[in-house]
């Protein structure tokens, strides 16, 4: 639920990074924070447990400047990926404007990707939101692991079982190295702001 202050021409939106546990959601935000420090309005806040597993969420607020006459602010969140934290994911999804689904390219995480996507669809439905209508971008992360001889899925395979019906934009990435992180965020911002422009009739 974006906040739009017409008087001061400020728009604030929320993008959530979703995906299975240990797929690299927090790593995405950490890279964004390091690479785009000048855009961050405060430090990144992470609520983790041992082993850098997200317990509640990561939060990174950013000011991305003026777009079509409006001061655009964005709140980036991650959810805890482990299946047992479903109620926390539902909380974090409240008021979401756009989603980046980070899928793990590892062959052994195929089922977890699918479960997480179904979980996202169900949690959105509980908020009367539709996975097919929300600004959504896929990121196929950990592509670099193939260099170490680790079995990863082909992009075509991931597209086929995750994005066959949704047909949303996707990016390959190695969040640890920063590859594909900015492109994913830029696309998500573009889709989200375009959607809000239509919804809020902002910047006519």
């Amino acid at each position: 639920m974006a906040f739009f202050n017409q008087k001061d021409k400020v728009i604030e939106c929320k993008i959530v990074y979703y995906g299975p546990g240990m797929c690299g959601k927090t790593t995405n935000l950490e890279y964004i924070f390091r690479a785009g420090r000048s855009y961050a309005t405060t430090d990144m806040i992470s609520i983790n447990t041992k082993g850098d597993r997200t317990l509640y969420f990561d939060f990174l607020p950013m000011g991305i400047g003026r777009i079509m006459g409006c001061d655009v602010k964005v709140q980036l969140f991650t959810v805890p990926g482990q299946s047992k934290y479903r109620s926390t994911r539902k909380m974090v999804l409240k008021g979401v404007d756009g989603i980046v689904f980070v899928a793990d390219s590892l062959q052994i995480r195929k089922n977890e990707n699918l479960s997480s996507l179904k979980d996202l669809q169900e949690n959105l439905a509980e908020q009367n939101m539709d996975l097919f209508n929300i600004p959504l971008v896929f990121q196929y992360n950990k592509r670099d692991l193939s260099e170490n001889g680790i079995p990863i899925m082909q992009v075509s395979e991931m597209e086929s079982y995750l994005n066959n019906k949704l047909k949303v934009p996707f990016y390959t990435a190695s969040a640890l190295k920063g590859n594909g992180v900015s492109d994913t965020l830029k696309k998500s911002l573009k889709l989200t702001l375009r959607h809000l422009q239509h919804e809020l009739r902002w910047a006519n």
């Binding site: 546990g21 240990m22 590892l106 052994i108 995480r109 950990k142 170490n148 001889g149 680790i150």
Partner: peptide, 18 residues
Amino acid sequence: QTLINEAEVYQSQGLLEE
């Protein structure tokens, strides 16, 4: 060695069960 390598990478990724 390939199996051990996989096990090590998964451990470093926090994928403990795998």
